[in-house]
């Protein structure tokens, strides 16, 4: 798609609405195929079909709820990562920031320094500050996001270990583990965290697709210069994107703590790359300006479905890693080929 030719405030969903002629079912299909989410959606369905045929345990409400529960942490991190990648940035520090936020809230709550809810707010606040610091260095000092977040990755990692004294924090108050608990829906147990994750994705799908702020994010990713010339305050916008991403990492920290029931200083060490994997599998371009957050949710689910399905088939975890690698290459290749063709 020749996105550079499009007016800077046109986001993909808006453009798709223009390109498709509304003539019944085929038009609807074409409109769907024209979204960057189509590829991942098809891939997820194919994988789901395959595992259903391979294992009679795959297609059950309980198992699918389990997959969602397993991807909620990386999926939420990937949501923040998507915002940054849409502006043509990258964040290597997300997993380390989350781990720090998690240990902060767990420790403050477990030793009774703060009431549980305040401790949670403190953890999320710390993550938001880290996001803001990333954003400030990228915008005001004009450092490349790759370098800034590489540095911040190490800082957050070290602070996590210093602050936690390498100790896992157990016996957390209920407020911190509540999101990991489940409620029955029909015969399936759904975790509250899964619901929060999906709600977050829907909220940001709305913000990016339907609000001026969202359109500005796409414009910034397409061409910062054009965006600036059309009157978008790009500095402020980029800072906001990094800060919002930090806030989302804070939510991910709460989800992490609730999922494992402990504050774990060693958590999240590969989650930065895992979140980028989810974004790329979801059809978002690493060059910025193109992609949808719902695609990222699908990307995270693809990884989760493969991991779960292969385990049900009895395939070892190293093959799961092998296959995830293959999927990423395929996704990026498809993105590149489609870019070349439209040039």
């Amino acid at each position: 798609m020749s996105t550079t030719a499009a007016p800077p405030n046109a986001s993909p969903p808006a453009r798709n609405a223009h390109t498709a002629e509304p003539t019944g079912a085929t038009a609807a299909l074409r409109r769907f195929a024209a979204t960057p989410t189509a590829g991942p959606a098809v891939a997820l369905l194919v994988a789901g079909l395959f595992f259903t045929l391979q294992s009679d345990r795959f297609l059950s409400g309980g198992n699918l709820a389990l997959v969602i529960q397993q991807v909620m942490v990386v999926g939420t991190l990937a949501l923040g990562q998507t915002l940054i990648i849409l502006t043509a940035g990258i964040d290597l520090s997300c997993g380390a920031i989350m781990a720090f936020g998690g240990i902060v809230m767990a420790k403050l709550a477990a030793d009774g320094t703060l009431p549980p809810l305040v401790a949670i707010a403190a953890g999320i606040g710390v993550c938001t500050l880290f996001g803001a610091a990333n954003g400030a260095l990228v915008t005001f000092v004009r450092l490349p996001p790759f370098i800034v977040t590489l540095g911040m990755l190490n800082i957050a990692f070290a602070l996590t270990h210093i602050y936690s004294d390498e100790q896992t924090v157990t016996d957390l108050p209920g407020a911190l583990t509540w999101l990991g608990e489940t409620f029955p829906m029909g015969r399936t147990d759904i975790s509250y965290g899964s619901v929060l994750t999906i709600a977050l994705f829907l909220f940001f799908a709305y913000v990016l697709g339907q609000t001026a702020w969202g359109k500005h994010v796409y414009a910034l990713g397409n061409s910062p210069e054009v965006a600036r010339l059309t009157g978008i305050r790009t500095t402020r916008l980029r800072l906001a994107v990094f800060t919002v991403a930090g806030f989302i990492y804070g939510i991910a920290a709460l989800l992490l703590v609730s999922r494992t029931g402990v504050g774990d200083p060693k958590a999240g060490q590969t989650d930065n790359l895992d979140s980028i994997t989810a974004v790329v599998l979801g059809g978002t371009s690493l060059f910025g300006g193109r992609g949808l957050v719902l695609g990222t949710l699908l990307g995270a689910l693809i990884v989760g479905v493969f991991r779960n399905g292969l385990q049900l088939m009895g395939v070892g975890s190293i093959y799961q890693t092998l296959i995830t690698g293959g999927l990423v290459i395929i996704a990026v290749t498809v993105d590149q080929i489609s870019r070349r063709r439209t040039r």
Binding site: A20, E21, A38, G39, L310, L327, I330, V334, T342
Partner: peptide, 26 residues
Amino acid sequence: SIFRTRTTLSRSAATAAAAALLVAGL
């Protein structure tokens, strides 16, 4: 606009085909 739609259609088709291949290998 038709050109664009067709490209993206083929892109989705390519992804689907790739996924199918991978799954067959699996």
